[in-house]
Nucleic acid binder design. Structure first.
Lengths: 321, 321
DNA sequence: AAACTGTTTTTTCACGATAAAAGACATTAT
DNA sequence: ATAATGTCTTTTATCGTGAAAAAACAGTTT
């Protein structure tokens, strides 16, 4: 104990941002710009500025910056309301992917890589300054990330001092799944009790279709399951109408996200099994028979827990990327 | 909706800190100094610097700053190892209480005052800059506070934009207590199943004594219950051995803390009833009869929920201080 | 009038800088 | 040899600052 978590553990990573005294990256603009380019393919002229704003989820200020650049690069002709598309976007019109990430995303990825790439034993200290330097960002962003991240239960703060890594251990996985099972069983029961005319039933039908679709093309699309899985479980959790239950799914989603990324062993088989369990689970929900729902939910959660556990060796040893 | 949460709602509050370009207050030192003064009453000479450090929970650097000042003010004679007490501390030796608070505490108090003092309707926007100005602190501290506070489920962030107040509503109280009941029932069952030689049983005995003591002097000490309540429930939650359950008690503790502060109606009666329920609950735990534990736990949680709910009017109207 | 565009103000986000506090190292005393 | 003290270095906590993005305001166009 007492050893540092990030002491020159990685290659001297090229700074994520341009090094010099930069205040704030314009990733919001770049990401929205890229998404707007994709929109360009479909229409002859763009809608009004406020409409574009809601469509892209950004302010009108950002929309105008996007339009200005599109005019500059000859993608559109822009005169007040008229925004006519002049040409199709080329690959080099897009901003590079890595420039569209949030700082929070950059930090999280970097942090999780270190965490899972081995050598990150429970009890290690986390050094804000060192982390910031290695990732190439300011300390404030790292601090804020760590505070946000702390709710996942993997790190803990010593007052007026460093953070302590608790480790991605078997114990962690068991505590996490214990809560998950408690919450999901309750949510599933609440779901089944929802009135027939509730919108969730059509959502469920749609998800069922997607599951069947994916099952039929499992050989090629098995890696798309992870995203479908999250949407399915979030739908169920939402039926609890409890913000703490709904929010807790963020913890689960985060863990499974990185788990999927790092543990590709038998991915196809695992996902195929999970799809089958989901379909049984969906059928149980549709039957509105609480006993069946409970059984189907339990069965799926049990195998989900098993999958997670087998990926965590008893004594922490590095997982290979 | 859309109205601001803290638009000049309060008196132009004297800045919490000294206004000018101050980097960091020395509240850690001041608080430790005060605590060290109390220590002075009991001994003729102080222990070694490292020992003092662990005793006060601060670094040796801070210990030495404390000793230096104690020497200056003639409280002790300090020469290397020898730290002899020269006189008893006087009231004016102490730093004023308000200077010993963490910035986080200052911000939280200020924020909760506004939240509970009325006029804080669900859907309102929270403005970091405005909050920071009104409290008299930097924006960074406010940001960090809001991030930390967000796990209580009372506020929510709009990406790249403001925070939204969800309101201290009946729905919130119900969602909170739902989880609390789930967690505590499980923890209580785990507690009762703990082996006889576990240290928790002596902890429980001690708490039982404190309850009886408090019950016998309820007329004068009823306001001390809140603190005892927290210690009791934390002991039980710890038996779950689940970090998410243990951590969730922070949410409950925070809510009940402010609830107790703002709703003094029938405080004595409420606490008297609660002590009785606790004693029954403790007896049930000691019996190790899961049925009895479940019943006693349910009964107490039900009345706790009722207490919380009655303090929240159906439609949010200000609570008087 | 409603909805849009043009312009200005405010707020958020992220940085570097600095004092407080922690921690590490070197020295000395038991 | 251990454990303290004395000194120096590193890290954390907090602020002010400036660019990005949002929001508000004002003027046009349909």
């Amino acid at each position: 104990m007492g050893t540092s978590y990030c002491a020159s553990s990685q290659q001297p990573q090229a700074t994520a941002c341009n090094g010099s005294g930069m205040s704030k990256s314009n990733n919001v603009y770049k990401d929205a710009y890229n998404r707007c380019l994709r929109l360009l393919d479909e229409t002859r002229s763009l809608p009004s500025e406020p409409e574009l704003g809601t469509l892209l989820g950004v302010s009108r200020t950002t929309v105008r910056t996007i339009l200005a650049r599109m005019e500059e690069t000859g993608l559109i002709a822009w005169n007040k309301r008229a925004k006519t598309v002049l040409r199709e976007p080329r690959p080099d019109d897009f901003f590079p992917e890595e420039e569209t990430d949030t700082l929070a995303e950059i930090i999280e990825r970097s942090f999780m890589r270190r965490l899972l790439a081995g050598g990150a034993e429970a009890g290690m200290q986390i050094n804000e300054l060192e982390l910031a330097r290695e990732i190439g960002v300011g300390t404030t962003s790292v601090r804020e990330f760590l505070i946000r991240f702390s709710r996942f239960g993997l790190i803990e703060k010593r007052r007026n001092s460093h953070w302590v890594l608790k480790g991605f251990t078997r114990a962690f996985a068991l505590e996490l799944t214990e809560i998950r099972e408690m919450f999901e069983l309750r949510s599933a029961a609440a779901f089944a009790a929802l009135p027939q005319d509730s919108a969730v039933w059509t959502d469920l039908d749609r998800l069922e279709d997607e599951h069947r679709q994916l099952a039929s093309e499992i050989a090629t699309r098995f890696n798309e399951f992870s995203e479908l899985d999250e949407r399915f479980h979030r739908l169920i959790h939402r039926a609890s109408h409890n913000r703490f239950i709904v929010d807790f799914y963020d913890v689960i989603a985060m863990i499974f996200h990185y788990h999927y990324q790092w543990n590709k062993a038998q991915e196809r088989e695992r996902n195929e099994v999970a799809i089958g369990e989901h379909l049984a689970y969906i059928a149980a929900l549709k039957s509105r028979d609480l006993g069946k729902v409970d059984a189907a939910c339990r069965k799926h959660l049990k195998s989900a827990r098993q999958t997670l556990l087998t990926s965590i060796p008893e004594s922490r040893s590095p997982l290979k990327p």
